[in-house]
Computed example of a mutant assay.
Amino acid sequence: MDTVTRLEHECAQAWPAVVDERLGDWRMRAAGGFTGRANSTLTCGDPGIDLPLALRRAAGFAERNGIRPTAHVVLGSRVDAEIAGQGWVVNLDHPGGAESLVMIGPLSPGAHEGARVDDAPSPGWWELTAGSQEPSSAQRHVLSSISGVGYGVLERDGQVVAAVRGAVVGDLLHVARLAVRPSHRRQGLAVGLLKTLYAWADAKGAKRQALQVAEHNTAAIRLYEGFGCAEHHRYRYWIPC
């Protein structure tokens, strides 16, 4: 398995869809519309059938699960070179952005006052990362249904002001849902919380990290570059015309 395919599948394991059906090496995923990654077909590897039929199968899966047919396609892959010829186009209106970077890097463990990593998500964590203290069933499944997940929080005066999710898959820490309240930004809280998360992951055997970030989110890209992360590859979301 090439490194891109391996990394994409590790990230998919860390971000579990409610429904995840295999089509050869492909993963057809659905989660009630919560995030593009959990509601798209990951087209890495060999689907075991020709591309036109594989895409039709992916579209049928999406329709059966009540979501828009969407293909998660790595730039420079064989699917990337051929999917336009099958009547699919890049989804330029995707809410999270049509194109994302997958960044990788080392861990930089540390600590920060008020920061910790919990074994279960608190109401404050849910509110900051999912928008409500009462998450939907899809949100709960994607964010909290697997083992090896840590829920990083940083509190000020009893309120969660920064939060992040970390999932350890083998020796990989997958980082997601980093959020800081607008009133507490530019105070170094994201850096402090991430260092605390890295220490938690290091204790669980993680040696490297990966994250997915939209290409337009330059602030997040610069943040992770400060930890030694660099772009590994990119992917885009495609939809049928």
Results as ranks from 00 to 15, higher is better:
T3F: 07
T5M: 09
T5W: 01
R6G: 05
H9E: 00
P16C: 08
V18P: 01
D20W: 03
E21Q: 15
R22E: 11
D25L: 09
D25M: 11
R27Y: 05
R27Q: 10
A30P: 02
G33M: 02
N39R: 10
N39P: 11
N39I: 03
L42N: 08
C44N: 06
C44H: 08
G45F: 00
G45K: 01
P47M: 01
P47L: 01
P47C: 00
D50G: 00
D50R: 13
L53K: 13
A54K: 01
R56L: 13
R56A: 13
R57I: 12
G60L: 11
F61I: 06
R64M: 12
G66Y: 06
P69W: 07
T70W: 02
A71I: 04
H72P: 03
V73R: 03
V73Y: 02
V74L: 03
L75C: 13
L75H: 11
G76R: 13
I83G: 02
I83F: 06
G85C: 06
V89R: 15
V89T: 15
N91W: 12
L92N: 14
E99G: 06
E99T: 15
S100G: 12
S100N: 14
S100K: 12
L101Q: 03
L101D: 08
V102E: 02
M103H: 05
G105W: 07
G105H: 04
P106R: 07
S108I: 09
G110D: 08
G110Q: 05
G114T: 09
R116Q: 10
V117Y: 00
A120G: 10
A120R: 15
S122Q: 09
S122K: 10
G124T: 09
G124P: 03
W126D: 01
G131A: 01
P135L: 00
Q139C: 05
R140H: 14
H141M: 07
V142A: 04
L143P: 01
S144N: 11
S144T: 00
S147P: 09
V149P: 01
V149Y: 01
V149T: 15
G150L: 05
Y151M: 10
Y151W: 12
V153R: 04
L154T: 03
E155I: 04
D157T: 10
V160M: 08
V160K: 05
V161T: 09
A162H: 03
A167R: 01
V168S: 00
V169K: 10
A176L: 07
R177N: 11
L178G: 07
V180R: 00
S183T: 13
H184W: 08
R186D: 13
Q187A: 14
Q187R: 14
L189N: 10
L189E: 06
L189Q: 09
A190Q: 00
V191R: 15
G192F: 03
G192P: 02
L193V: 00
L194C: 12
L194V: 12
K195C: 08
K195Q: 15
T196E: 07
Y198V: 02
A199N: 11
W200S: 04
A201Q: 06
A206L: 05
K207H: 14
R208H: 14
Q212P: 06
V213K: 02
E215T: 14
N217H: 14
T218K: 13
R222Q: 15
R222L: 07
G226H: 10
F227E: 00
C229R: 03
E231Y: 00
W238F: 13
W238S: 02
W238A: 01
W238H: 12
C241E: 13
